[in-house]
Amino acid sequence: MFKKSQLNSAQTIYEKEVIPNLKPHDGAIHVIMINSFSKFVNQNFGVETKYTNQLGYIIDRMQYEGYQVLDVKFDSLKGQGISGTMEGFHTLIMYK
């Protein structure tokens, strides 16, 4: 159930925010920054499925649409969100 919701959210973000900000295929290197949050309860050791599902979807779509992903850089900030219990993620995708 959560995975479907996460993928629907990623699809909406991709179509409404990522596509309008992608540069045309011109051989130059470009970047796009994606801001996101961890799962609400992120206290366990394991895969961060929300981030994995959502960013994975965006990166997959970019590649399926002919963009070459060159690098993915990431950082996080603790104590984010309304409750202050989430991590904020910044993901920089370098692409051609």
Rank of each mutant, 00 (worst) to 15 (best):
Asn53Ser: 13
Phe37Ile: 07
Ala28His: 15
Phe40Val: 13
Gln54Trp: 05
Ile58Asn: 05
Tyr57Ser: 03
His25Cys: 09
Glu48Ile: 05
Tyr51Met: 11
Phe45Met: 13
Asn53Tyr: 14
Ile32Cys: 00
Glu17Leu: 04
Asn53Ala: 13
Leu22Lys: 02
His30Lys: 03
Glu17Asp: 07
Asn21Phe: 03
Tyr57Trp: 03
Asn42Glu: 11
Ile34Gly: 00
Val18Ala: 03
Tyr57Gln: 01
Leu55Cys: 13
Glu15Phe: 00
Thr52Ser: 14
Asp60Thr: 11
Asn35Lys: 09
Ile29His: 10
Ile19Ala: 06
Asp60Gly: 10
Glu17His: 07
Ile59Ala: 06
Glu15Asn: 10
Ile59Val: 10
Asn42Ile: 07
Ser36Asn: 11
Leu55Ser: 14
Lys23Thr: 04
Lys50Ile: 01
Gly46Glu: 07
Ile19Leu: 08
Phe45Arg: 14
Val18Asn: 04
Ser36Lys: 08
Val41Tyr: 14
Ser38Cys: 05
Thr49Gly: 05
Pro20Asn: 01
Pro20Met: 02
Gln43Pro: 02
Ile58Tyr: 02
Ser36Leu: 11
Tyr57Ile: 02
Asn44Lys: 14
Arg61Asn: 04
Thr49Phe: 10
Val41Thr: 14
Glu48Val: 02
Gly27Ala: 06
Ile32Phe: 00
Glu48Asn: 12
Phe37Met: 15
Lys23Cys: 10
Ile34Leu: 02
Lys23Glu: 10
Pro20Gly: 02
Ile59Met: 06
Ile32Gly: 00
Phe40Gln: 15
Gly27Gln: 08
Asp26Thr: 08
Thr52Val: 13
Ile58Ser: 06
Asp60Ser: 10
Pro24Ser: 09
Leu55Lys: 15
Lys16Met: 09
Lys16Asn: 15
Phe40Thr: 15
Glu15Ser: 02
Lys39Asn: 15
Phe37Trp: 12
Val18Phe: 03
Glu15Ile: 01
Ile13Gln: 07
Tyr14Pro: 07
Tyr57Val: 04
Lys50Cys: 08
Leu55Thr: 15
Ser36His: 12
Gly27Ser: 05
Lys16Ala: 14
Asp60Trp: 09
Ile29Gly: 09
Thr52Asn: 11
His30Ala: 00
Glu48Arg: 08
Phe45Ile: 13
